[in-house]
Every structure is written in structure tokens, then in C-alpha cells.
Write a protein that binds this DNA or RNA. Structure first.
Length: 816
DNA sequence: GACTGAACTATACC
DNA sequence: ACGGGTATAGTTCAGTC
């Protein structure tokens, strides 16, 4: 049989002591198919130099005889081949040791004659990754498959008869299809509401499910509503059974939730256990499984469970402006949908109407989750195709894993043996190496500037890595002839000029990014945008990756050299721009702001060209934008210019605000909004007059207690468990109060509070911190002196105005 | 008891 | 444990006078 097939979910099983892969996917006409196949399982033992041919043959013969008994399984070496390979760019002789079961790789490696080997590698390449590398059956890409249909076959223990698929096929031939039509998966979203926020404590009140066909809320609460989407069940157990039944019947390709690895699925599992309900959601009847220890990942065979939160965290968060990564904020920003505002109440206090609203809210969450999924789907599918790892992994992995995997899947053409992941001791060693010097930041001279030009280096760190060939495999332990030398303060680092695979792969990523960006600009589509963006994200992560202790190709010197050469390049560019007679205002890492002065835009672009003609390698400086005005302020303490804090307005009146309190969520809105207004007025009008008037107005409103509570709320994130805090800050104090009221305070939540009035003049802020719903009037002095005035006084200082004098001069002098 | 600086904490920039 | 370093600024708290 021959068919067009797109792989969606990968899993493996053992049959007669050997490994097999089972892949669930779809055919072009929407049939669901399971493919069964296997591939060679092997690892490499890299030989020491100077071993004679006869000695090597002797070693091979010895290894061939290795056999291990693992429980009922007899594991053995199948064959051994001597190979010419590369390891970290060096030619090596390696034994490719084929074994019968990948689970025994480590055990078998332990019984090798280690004294003949420099390294043992590829023990930590998992079977699914190995299969994809070997057989080139890539995730979410269409393939032409030929094979034998298994129909009530005895083969593989009768696997085809338990699988709920249209066909089960044993693969004979795999070919990538020429045509790659868009694949639209069947996606079901779900969400639960519970009596408790702690996993498994208290019942699940309801479960909502949503896809193109299904729109349901399952509940065992007895309320009097005839809404069509509500399905009533006798108890929690019945409801859970119905959940399993509906998911199985609909059988989506993807089941998605928001934070569902961390909450919904673990909760469902805990309650199912309590109620003795089997969560046999897998296409082979297998149960929902969890893996991953500390941060569990819920897996269902054949239906890919995607926790949208995780993907958004790694692939989107750097572009989001949302204050939290909660479903509400993210959906609002990405798809413009707001959740219905429902206020949580303890169950026993809920009225009939509350329950109806709660059910509606629960359904709404699933609907939003599904829409959000469809919005980010182009990014997810492109990530999976580019990194060549299954959706299940790519949707959850962090960027370091993604970079790791991208490299692993691209090493074949370099004939490279894959480096191992670090384990405990190695991680500890790497972490103890300490920090290295990072980016250069120029101290600005505070002031309001007219006509500001901003240049920046395109993908600066990636360009530096490529231009100077910085990586683990190109790093030299000591100086060699004709190498690249980098000054790292008291020491020097050396890199060979012979192109390494890491910079070369990175260059390919950059080129592909350029290619797809161009294609996107010519004919925009979400897929092309996602593809271009995925390459950009991987390129941007490459620098952090080489300095990250968990990376396979970690090389601290390469990371330190990248930062050092970036500094060198930006300083050189600053010098160059200065030499053309421009006044430099500011610079941070890869960007330079300077005054246009009397020069024309044409002259500036000509200078840019000239600078670019002299830059090394692929380094490239580009125009970020021309700005009408920009403002830089001093630090709070005094005279020096504040770094990482400025505001600009371009010729289309679009503002770019960096670092100011306006963009910080741990300041109250009254201060943020005032500061934003002040910056806007000053930048668009070119003076401080109306901004000052506006500021006075707000100050008076605060003094008259005319500000609504909502605008005074300060939000601070709890970054770790309460018990680990050494300092009793206001937000920790409030978190403790919340805990005593029975509200869960897990790390990561945003603590909201305001500062209230108190008779004691000298009390600490934490003693006056109150929950938003408390009634004590707000502390006028605190909001003036600690929020509003600090937010704007540095800005007025630029114009020589001391805000305090102004206020003193007005009638409200009593406060000061 | 007022003052000062270090420690701790959160959040931004790139 | 699941990218890096640079930077500002708040609150608390221990030590000094």
C-alpha cells in the first residue's frame, strides 16, 4: 500500500526485546494511520590514537560478544563497525556499536574495555530522535509511505487490533512528498474548574471542551439551566468518564489547555485515581502518563497534548507586552479576546446565578484557548518542522533544548558524532565558573534632544559568532599559528580559522531567516512569517546557548569572546560615527543613538554605507529609525545619566519608551499613566509646560483622594516559595496574609496591594500594605512621595525644574 | 533615635 | 535546570554615631 502521510505523534514500544517506533498521523484524505517501523540502535566509542589495526580488530571481536540480561530481556551487541568520523571538528576513529535495545545502551557501554577509548558518545540520543535522523520521517511534513497493512496480524503482538486508527502499516519505504499542502489538525481545547487550587484537593466542578464541532461543559453540580451546552452528571466520577468518552469519540489530533501540564491534567489524574476512573485516552487504550519529574508533562499516545502556556513562554514572551503570561492577558494581546470577568467565590457561597456564570466562564476559557492555539499554530508547526522534533517536545522545550536539537538534526553532513548532555558534576563545574564581562552600555548625557538617529547591528551576537568562528569545536586550548585571538581582560582566548559546524549552521539559520523574511515581504502569509520568526528566535538564542551550563555545546570562552568582540565592534562604530562629526547620545549592546545635527538623512545613510563597507565578516549596521525627539534623564541619586532609560518619538508620532516606570508593572497605574502622559507631552510639544500643568492636576487629585483604588494597586510577583524569603517586603507580607485567608500563593503569582494610611507616622510600608479589597483610605503621602513624584521628577529635572519647589510654592505646602 | 549603607528583591534592556 | 550580562530602584535591616 502507498499513501501520503504526515507524522504527528511519535512513540515507541518493545517487541521481542527490540525497539519499534509507532507514529500516528493523517493521510491526505484525513484518515488516521499508525505506522510501525524500526531503525538501527547504536552509539559510538571513540578510539584512542596509535592503536594497531590488529588491536582494534581484537577489541571489536571482544565487544561483539557482549551480552546482558536485563530482567527477561537479553540485550546484546549486534555488530561493530570501525568508522572515520569527526568529533568536535577533529578526525577520529570510532567504533559504531549496534545494539538490540536502546534502553540498554548505558549498561552495555559500561562493560566496554574503556582503556582503549577517549570518549563514549550518543548514549543520550533518545530512540525517537534517532529514528527521525536515521529514517528521515520528519514531524509535520508530508511523506510518501509504502508498506504492508497489518490486519489482525500476529506481528508485534497484535498491535493493530487494539489501535483505534483507520490503518496500521508496517513501513517499507519513506520518501518526502514534493507537494506540502497546509495541514490543519483537529484541535480540541479543554479547561477545568475546581474546588481547590491545590492539585487533587477537592472535586472538579466542571470540565469544558471545545472544537469545531463540540461545545460542552460537563458538570455534576445541580443547577437549573437549560443551556444546550451544559451536560449534567450524577457525580464527579461520571463526569470524568464522560470526559474520557467524549475525547475518545472526537479523537482530536491535538488536545490543548493553558497551563494544563501544571494544573488541569495533574488535577484530572488525581481525581480519576480517587474515583477509580481509568483515563484510557490513548489510541491504544493506554492511560494518560506523566513524565519529567520536577515539571511533569502530560502525554497521551496518539493525541498530542499541548500546554499552550509553555510554548508561549518560550516562543512569544519576549514579544509580548502583557503584564502576566496568564490566559487572560495573553489572549487579550494576541487575539483581542477578553475572558468574561467572573469573580471567584468559595463554592459554598455561590448562588444559582453565580454557578451559571461560572459555567459560562469555564466554557469561554476553552473557546479562548482553542482560538489562541490556532493563532500560534503556524509558529508551532514551523518550529517542529525546522527543529525536526515532534510537536509534543517542541511545544514544551526551552530554547536551549531547541538549539540542541536543531544542531543534532543537522550534524550528518559534518560527519560529526554528537556531544553528550552535561550531567550533575559537569553542570556543577560549569555553573561555578562564574560570570564573564557582558555588553557595553554608554552613559548618556541627560537632556531633551531634537532629531535623533538610531542605528543597530543586525542579529549582532549571531553575526559575531559567525564572523569570528566562535564555538566549542573551534576553540583552541592554546595559541596556534594564524588563529583568531580574543582579549578577555586578563586572559586571551584562541579560535581556529577553519570553519566550525556551529558557526556554519548558525550562518545557514541566518541566511534562511533572510530568505523567508524576503519571501514573506513579497507574499505575506502566517506560515512564512512564522518560519522567518522561528529562524530568528533560534539565531538569537545561539549566544545564550553557548554560555548556558545545560548546553551540549557549551563553551564559556566562546560566549565571553562573543560579548568581548561585540563590545569591540560597537565601540569602533561609535568612534567612526563621531569622526563624521556627530554627537553620540547613547549606546547599549548593539544600538547607537546620535544627534542628526545639521546633516541630511541622505548624508547619514551614506555614512551608514561607508561604515558597512568596512565591517568585518557578516557584521552589518542598519538604520533603526529617525526620531523627532528623545529624552534621557539622570539616575534617581543624582548627576549621572541613567542607562537603559529613555523615550523617543518618531516622525509618525510613535513613541518608544524604554526602562521608565511606565513600562514597569511593579509601579501603580496612577504613576505610570502620569509619566506616560508627561513623556508624550514633552516629546510631542518639545517643552515641559503643559506636562507640568497636568502633573499639578494629578497631584491635587491625589491629595483630594479623588483617585480610584484600581489605579493605586501595586503588583509585585512572588518569585519563590514564601518560606525562602529572607526579607519581609510588602508583597511578602501581603502574600502571607493571603495564605492565612486560604488563598493559594504559589511562586509566580502577582501579589496585589496598596499602601494605606496609618496613625503611626514612621511605620514601614509593609505594615501599611493592604489587600485591594480592604477599606482603609490610601496613604496620600506615600503615593505622592514614593510613586507619583519619583516617576516624573527626573524628567522635569532635565528642564531645570525642581518639582518640590513648585509644589511648595503652591497652596499644598503642608505636606512637605 | 536618626542616619547610612549593605543586602535583598523585582524588573527592565538588549 | 532547561539562554546571557548590565542596570535602576525600591524596602528592609543592621550597624554607627
Amino acid at each position: 500500500m502507498e499513501l501520503s502521510f504526515i507524522p504527528i505523534d511519535y512513540d515507541y514500544f518493545d517487541f521481542q526485546g527490540e525497539n519499534y517506533i509507532k507514529i500516528i498521523g493523517r493521510t491526505k484524505d484525513g484518515k488516521r494511520v499508525c505506522l510501525i517501523d524500526n531503525c538501527d540502535v547504536y552509539f559510538y566509542a571513540i578510539l584512542k590514537e596509535n592503536l594497531s589495526e590488529s588491536k582494534i580488530n581484537q577489541i571489536i571481536e571482544k565487544i561483539k560478544r557482549i551480552q546482558l540480561k536485563e530482567g527477561a530481556r537479553l540485550s546484546k551487541v549486534i555488530k561493530v563497525e570501525l568508522k572515520d568520523k569527526n568529533f568536535l571538528g577533529e578526525k577520529v576513529n570510532a567504533l559504531k556499536i549496534y545494539i538490540s535495545n536502546h534502553k540498554d545502551a548505558k549498561k552495555i557501554s559500561e562493560s566496554l574495555p574503556h582503556k582503549y577509548f577517549k570518549h563514549i558518545r550518543e548514549l543520550d540520543v533518545n530512540y525517537i530522535t534517532r529514528y527521525i535522523i536515521e529514517k528521515k520521517l520528519f514531524p509535520l511534513i508530508w511523506h510518501k509511505i509504502s508498506g504492508e497493512v497489518l490486519n489482525n496480524s500476529e506481528e508485534f503482538g497484535g498491535i493493530d487490533s487494539v489501535l483505534e486508527v483507520d490503518f496500521c502499516i508496517k513501513i517499507e519505504k519513506i520518501e518526502k512528498s514534493k507537494e506540502q499542502p497546509e495541514f490543519k489538525p483537529k484541535v480540541m481545547a479543554f479547561d477545568i474548574e475546581t474546588e481547590s487550587f491545590e492539585i487533587g484537593q477537592g472535586e472538579i466542578s466542571m470540565i469544558s471542551l471545545y472544537d469545531e464541532k463540540i461545545k460542552k461543559v460537563l458538570t455534576h453540580k445541580k443547577i437549573n439551566s437549560k443551556e444546550k451546552y451544559i451536560e449534567y452528571y450524577d457525580d464527579e466520577a461520571d463526569m470524568l468518564e464522560a470526559f474520557v468518552k467524549i475525547v475518545k469519540k472526537e479523537s482530536p489530533d491535538i488536545l490543548t489547555g493553558y497551563f494544563s501540564d501544571g494544573f488541569d491534567l495533574p488535577y484530572i489524574k488525581a481525581r480519576a485515581e480517587k474515583n477509580r476512573v481509568k483515563l484510557s485516552l490513548g489510541l491504544d487504550g493506554s492511560q494518560l502518563k506523566f513524565s519529567g519529574g520536577m515539571s511533569p508533562r502530560g502525554k497521551i499516545f496518539g493525541i498530542v497534548h499541548v500546554d499552550l502556556f509553555k510554548f508561549i513562554q518560550t516562543a512569544y514572551s519576549q514579544y509580548l507586552e502583557s503584564e502576566t503570561l496568564g490566559l487572560n492577558d495573553v489572549a487579550n494581546e494576541l487575539i483581542g479576546e477578553k475572558k468574561s470577568d467572573y469573580e471567584f467565590k468559595p463554592n459554598e457561597k455561590m448562588s444559582e446565578i453565580d454557578w451559571k456564570k461560572f459555567i459560562e466562564y469555564n466554557l469561554q476559557d476553552s473557546i479562548i484557548t482553542q482560538k489562541l492555539f490556532l493563532k500560534v499554530w503556524p509558529d508551532m508547526i514551523e518550529f517542529s518542522k525546522i527543529i525536526q522534533e515532534p510537536l509534543f517536545h517542541v511545544s514544551r522545550d526551552g530554547m536551549s533544548s531547541n538549539v540542541d536539537n536543531f544542531i543534532i538534526h543537522n550534524l550528518e553532513k559534518y560527519n560529526e558524532i554528537i556531544e553528550k548532555k552535561p550531567i550533575h558534576d559537569e553542570i556543577g563545574k560549569r555553573r561555578s565558573e562564574g560570570k564573564y564581562e557582558g555588553a557595553f552600555v554608554l552613559e548618556p548625557k541627560p537632556g531633551l534632544y531634537e532629531n535623533v538617529v538610531m542605528f543597530d547591528f543586525t542579529s549582532m551576537y549571531a553575526s559575531v559568532i559567525i564572523t569570528y568562528n566562535l564555538s566549542k569545536s573551534t576553540f583552541l586550548e592554546k595559541k596556534e599559528k594564524n588563529n583568531i585571538e580574543v582579549n578577555l581582560g586578563n586572559v586571551k582566548a584562541y579560535f581556529t580559522k577553519k570553519k566550525g559546524f556551529f558557526p556554519e549552521i548558525l550562518e545557514e539559520i541566518i541566511n534562511l531567516r533572510k530568505k523567508y523574511k524576503k519571501e514573506y515581504q513579497q507574499s505575506p502569509s502566517p506560515i512564512l512569517k512564522a518560519r522567518s520568526n522561528a529562524f530568528k528566535l533560534i539565531a538569537n538564542a545561539a549566544y545564550g546557548y553557548q554560555g548556558f551550563f545545560g548546553a551540549r555545546y557549551y563553551q564559556r570562552e566562546a560566549a565571553a569572546s562573543t560579548a568581548a568582540l561585540a563590545r569591540e565592534n560597537i565601540l569602533e562604530a561609535i568612534k567612526k560615527i563621531k569622526s563624521y562629526g556627530y554627537e553620540i547620545i547613547y549606546s547599549d549592546t548593539d544600538s547607537i543613538a546620535f544627534s542628526q545635527g545639521k546633516k541630511s538623512k541622505k548624508e547619514i545613510l551614506k555614512m551608514l554605507d561607508e561604515i558597512n563597507n568596512n565591517l568585518p565578516g557578516i557584521m552589518e549596521l542598519e538604520l533603526e529609525d529617525f526620531y523627532k525627539r528623545g529624552i534621557w534623564v539622570t539616575t534617581r541619586s543624582g548627576e549621572v545619566g541613567a542607562k537603559k532609560k529613555y523615550a523617543l518619538i518618531n516622525e509618525k508620532n510613535k513613541m518608544k519608551i524604554r526602562g521608565f516606570e511606565t513600562v514597569r508593572r511593579d509601579w501603580c497605574n496612577v504613576a505610570r499613566e502620569l509619566q506616560n502622559k508627561v513623556l508624550e507631552k514633552i516629546l510631542s510639544e518639545g517643552n515641559e509646560k503643559s506636562a507640568l500643568e497636568y502633573t499639578k492636576k494629578i497631584i491635587i487629585q491625589i491629595e483630594k483622594r479623588e483617585i480610584e483604588k484600581e489605579k493605586l494597586i501595586i503588583k509585585t510577583q512572588l518569585k519563590k516559595p514564601l518560606s525562602e524569603y529572607k526579607a519581609n517586603t510588602p508583597h511578602v507580607t501581603i502574600a502571607k496574609k493571603m495564605l492565612s485567608l486560604g488563598i493559594p500563593v504559589d511562586p509566580g503569582i502577582l501579589i496585589k496591594y496598596y499602601i494605606a494610611e496609618s496613625d503611626k507616622k514612621k511605620s514601614l510600608a509593609r505594615d501599611r500594605a493592604k489587600l485591594p479589597e480592604e477599606k482603609t483610605p490610601y496613604d496620600i503621602e506615600y503615593y505622592l512621595k514614593k510613586q507619583v513624584i519619583p516617576a516624573v521628577e527626573n524628567i522635569f529635572h532635565v528642564f531645570g525644574i525642581k518639582l518640590e519647589d513648585i509644589i511648595k510654592g503652591s497652596k499644598q505646602q503642608t505636606l512637605f
